[in-house]
Design a binder for these strands. Structure first.
Lengths: 116, 116
DNA sequence: TTGACATATGCTTATATTGGCATATATGCT
DNA sequence: AGCATATATGCCAATATAAGCATATGTCAA
């Protein structure tokens, strides 16, 4: 068995740095392919291919306008990634470290005075 | 050129669902390989291989204890993923939608009374 | 219609992957 | 030493990738 297809889900689609760059560029709003080609300095066919992958996982939508295709971000598709990774935030965030300190304090008090 | 190695960075390592399961399982704390084998219902060699990938991107650490190897989570390695994806949260989060409403209000007021 | 522009698709090459199975390595026990 | 347990590694097969380049498709304009 080979690696899962890049189109299998957002996790796989977004593992490719260029595709993240494309999404980042689309944060500025809807844009035609050639805009992205210019901004990222990639060959046009590769950009089209990356966009196809992103479209297949729902991370972008297209709108035809004349001979241009305007791609637009659909961040919704990235929610599963955020949902998964956010639970790990406590492992590096200072905010959570301080929360842990507070919880420790509470535990100690509980032991001392038998708070219920 | 082929796809980037799974060990290239956390994004690639975590694209594989089984590896995410392993990390999730390690949230409960340090555990020996066979624990994970039992919990995930995978073959032992595959688990060892997945753990190797996770180790190579720094997502887990190992500690030898007798003939066991205790793997422990190192969430720090997932921070880049969180950092990247969190900026997209506004695209689906209600919290941000409400923020947008507030900002709209402010803009309107600004037009009305020329607040500075 | 002919041509220019915008984008998508097809083909090739080099490469890495995952699972399965066998086996190596390391440690502990008797 | 000899054996069992815990884990890692090696090899195979099947598959999917990404870049490069050529070319097809679609649209507008003269």
């Amino acid at each position: 068995m080979a690696r899962a297809a890049t189109t299998a889900d957002a996790f796989n689609a977004v593992a490719e740095p260029r595709r993240r760059q494309i999404l980042d560029a689309l944060t500025a709003g809807e844009r035609p392919v050639n805009d992205l080609v210019a901004e990222l300095g990639l060959a046009q066919p590769q950009v089209s291919k990356h966009l196809r992958v992103l479209r297949e996982v729902g991370a972008v939508d297209v709108r035809h306008e004349g001979r241009q295709r305007l791609y637009r971000l659909n961040g919704q598709a990235l929610k599963p990634i955020h949902d998964w990774v956010k639970d790990y935030e406590r492992l590096w965030s200072e905010r959570f470290e301080q929360l842990d300190v507070v919880l420790e304090e509470l535990k100690k008090e509980e032991g001392d005075v038998s708070v219920n």
